[in-house]
């Protein structure tokens, strides 16, 4: 059961996801209180262990905010992150959970609006499910 105020962990790349979050805050955009933000040096540091552990600890969903393809400062961190997310989504389906509990979201640093929208969309998905 997902509560009215779902717990979402956002793993944020320091180069894109984190600035996007800060941007959303500076714009005063609505972000749910249940959002927990974890900064990572690169989207590629979002390891499968972290993502599953977050769900294991009780998060309703996990979002990975990383750079767009071709923009990774470390060449392939974002691609690795996306592949891990896809792997875990498949696994979630097999254990009877919605794959939407783990999503990969490429963002640009100055896209607070998009950050807030993506989080809101995730909240809607969770509550609708």
């Amino acid at each position: 059961m997902v509560s009215k105020n779902p717990k979402i962990v956002a793993f944020c790349c320091e180069e894109s996801g984190m600035p996007a979050y800060e941007h959303a805050v500076s714009l005063g955009l609505d972000l749910p209180d249940g959002l927990k933000v974890v900064a990572l040096p690169c989207g590629g540091k979002a390891e499968t262990g972290y993502l599953m552990k977050a769900l294991d600890e009780g998060a309703d969903a996990v979002m990975v905010f990383a750079c767009y393809e071709g923009n990774c400062k470390y060449v392939r961190g974002n691609i690795r992150a996306e592949k891990r997310v896809n792997y875990l989504r498949e696994r979630l389906e097999k254990i009877g959970l919605s794959p939407e509990k783990i999503v990969f979201c490429p963002v640009a640093p100055a896209s607070g609006q998009r950050f807030a929208e993506l989080v809101q969309r995730e909240v809607d998905t969770l509550l609708g499910a």
Binding site: T48, M52, K53, L55, D56, I95, G96, L97
Partner: peptide, 18 residues
């Protein structure tokens, strides 16, 4: 060790859900 952590979390989540 990495797979141990990931699989343990998956089993716990699945059983919690059930």
């Amino acid at each position: 060790e990495k797979e141990v952590g990931v699989l343990a979390s998956q089993i716990r989540v699945a059983r919690q859900e059930a």
